[in-house]
């Protein structure tokens, strides 16, 4: 699923943010990505999502070299990945429903084929009464749930989530974790970057611990 070979990253002439990371993440696995602030969790997720290129080494996704891929190839690979950003990245001029439906619209699906799925998912994440509201009027937690719904609506093969429960209460955090687990059971590989130890205690999964630019697999 994901293979990193001696991956390193440094900005310009600066020190290495990530150094000589080699990893193999199997299909259908579930990992927490953890580490202190500034350890490079978001950077690693961005590299896995191909929005950042490593300065050293290679990244392989779905059996293909994902380093320096063409724009069209990158788009095709990203369709197999769902991502939840820390800052949500919702489009303010689209309703919550339209934001969540965006990945399906982009791949050319007919609205009649996904209308109910989007509505059901929004109901499930507790945004049933907010689906026709616009992001600026949503709370932080609601935006986060909308962002998660958008990431999972296309049933991705790989889900990358950056602090996905950072803005929700513990009960909603458990509910969202359950969504990730359910997706994982359906075959999606999941990597969740988090500081939330309570969350990690609720589900036994290997941890990728980042410190000093290197990664250690625990569990």
């Amino acid at each position: 699923m994901i293979r990193l070979e001696n991956v390193g990253l440094h900005y310009g002439q600066g020190p290495e943010v990530l150094s000589n990371i080699s990893l193999h993440i199997k299909p259908g696995s579930f990992h927490f990505l953890t580490g202190p602030s500034g350890s490079g969790k978001t950077t690693l997720l961005r590299m896995l999502f191909m929005s950042l290129q490593p300065t050293d080494g290679d990244i392989h996704l779905f059996g293909q070299n994902a380093t320096n891929v063409s724009a069209s190839r990158r788009a095709q690979l990203r369709r197999r990945i769902g991502i939840v950003f820390q800052d949500f990245r919702l489009l303010d001029h689209l309703t919550t429903w339209e934001n969540v439906a965006l990945p399906l619209r982009v791949i050319g699906k007919r609205v009649s084929n996904y209308k109910e799925d989007v509505t059901d998912l929004l109901q499930w994440v507790g945004l049933g009464d907010r689906m026709y509201g616009f992001p600026p009027v949503l709370s932080g937690g609601e935006k986060q749930r909308a962002a998660i719904a958008r990431a999972v609506i296309g049933k991705p093969e790989l889900l990358l989530a950056d602090e996905p429960t950072g803005n929700v209460d513990p009960q909603m955090a458990r509910r969202l974790l359950r969504l990730f687990i359910e997706l994982n059971r359906l075959g999606t590989s999941v990597i969740i970057a988090t500081h939330d130890h309570q969350l990690m205690k609720q589900f036994k999964a290997p941890r990728l611990e980042l410190h000093d630019g290197t990664v250690e697999v625990i569990g």
């Binding site: 059901d120 109901q123 689906m131 458990r174 359910e182």
Partner: peptide, 28 residues
């Protein structure tokens, strides 16, 4: 076992509901 308990603790599964989304609101 942990995640089984977690799943059991939440009654609702991800199933299709009867929710009806009016077309004019979905603005496809």
């Amino acid at each position: 076992a942990t995640d089984d308990r977690l799943l059991e603790s939440h009654g609702s599964e991800i199933k299709m509901t009867e929710f009806y989304a009016p077309a004019r609101q979905t603005r496809a």
